[in-house]
């Protein structure tokens, strides 16, 4: 225990230097993934045949292949056809594209769970389809999706660690580096795990606060 603490005092500051990059990677990817996910969901639920199929193929493609393969393809594969990204950008793109596919499916399930009569009533009072989606369907669907979306957000936070494999200097990469210098992989990865745990539980409590704040009887359950 004492060893653990001593190791922490010595190396924690270095490990924590990875936190901003991990969080930046996560926030950018999850936000862009959310926007893209909404578009994909819209295409699949409300779009014409073409939109539906493009969205469906996209979602199946990204859910059916490992994120590590996607990341390697973007960072190591694309330069062969002249498209070059730095490691951080490549990681953001990979996590964004991957997360969008999952988020789209959560959004879709949530939109479909809103009773049909809500859309009909909105159209019946003269709202356009877009207004009905924007003012009636989306606010309800987004409230309903928070629990699943939280899971996805936390999974993606942990997935930022695989950016280490393409050289992004986030928490896991720094831990690996400290480990090879001290040869104490046991301690360093315990500490790294602890940092992730603190981050994920903070995010979880934050989102559950949002869920409580946006609760409306009859739309979401407590």
């Amino acid at each position: 225990m004492l060893d653990f603490l001593r190791f922490g005092i010595e190396w924690l500051p270095a490990l924590l230097k990875g936190v901003p990059l991990t969080l930046a990677l996560w926030v950018i990817a999850i936000t862009l993934g959310c926007l893209l996910g909404l578009i994909l969901c819209w295409a699949r639920v409300y779009g014409n045949r073409l939109c539906y199929w493009i969205s469906t193929v996209y979602i199946e493609l990204f859910r059916g292949t490992p994120m590590l393969v996607q990341m390697f393809f973007i960072y190591l594969g694309l330069p062969h056809v002249g498209i070059v990204f730095d490691a951080f950008t490549a990681a953001v793109i990979a996590i964004t594209l991957n997360s969008a596919a999952y988020q789209a499916e959560y959004f879709r399930g949530s939109v479909l769970s809103v009773p049909r009569g809500q859309m009909v009533a909105a159209r019946a009072c003269g709202m356009s389809k877009w207004q009905a989606i924007r003012h009636i369907m989306l606010p309800q669907a987004l409230r309903r999706v928070i629990p699943q979306w939280s899971n996805e957000a936390i999974i993606e936070l942990k997935f930022t660690s695989i950016a280490y494999t393409i050289g992004v200097v986030e928490i896991t990469a720094i831990a690996q580096d400290i480990g090879s210098r001290t040869l104490d992989f046991f301690q360093v990865f315990l500490w790294a795990g602890l940092i992730y745990l603190v981050l994920t539980s903070t995010v979880a409590s934050l989102l559950s606060w949002v869920e409580r704040r946006t609760h409306v009887p009859g739309v979401t359950t407590n």
Binding site: G117, A121, G126, Q140
Partner: peptide
């Protein structure tokens, strides 16, 4: 525009839940 001038009351109310 026409629907805005035609009030419609549904069997199952369809109030906007949120």
């Amino acid at each position: 525009a026409m629907r805005a001038r035609i009030g419609f009351v549904f069997q199952d109310f369809n109030l906007f839940s949120h």
